[in-house]
Amino acid sequence: MVVDVMKAFLLGGCICIIGQLLVDLTKLTPARIMVIFVVTGVVLGLFGLYQPLVEWGGAGATVPLTGFGNLLAKGVIKEIEEQGFLGVFTGGVKSAAAGITAAVTFGYIMAIISKPRIKS
């Protein structure tokens, strides 16, 4: 368990360092960086390159946005195998359903109970 947590921390941290470097060293807006991460995850997932990271680092690989991209790719591949061409349109959102719904639900709850302020 402790080793798993350490691995997740290391891998997740490394992915976040890439994000931070993009924020600090480039003029990319955060929105673009997020899209880059998702698309990178999709591409890595398509070629099966992301799954080894998930197996090694667990949540360290699935929680960052690249993990979301990987999930989309995996879902589409699975649906194409089961449903054929229609899977291109249904697979991604199906496999990411839990994550999307959780983001909307918890985002809504946090918006109700919290008030934005200047970071001090």
Partner: peptide, 19 residues
């Protein structure tokens, strides 16, 4: 805060601010 909303992102969105 209103300038952030006007020119960048609303603070409510919780975007990481570009330095």
């Amino acid at each position: 805060c209103s300038a952030e909303r006007q020119f960048r992102f609303p603070l409510e969105y919780g975007n990481q601010r570009t330095p």
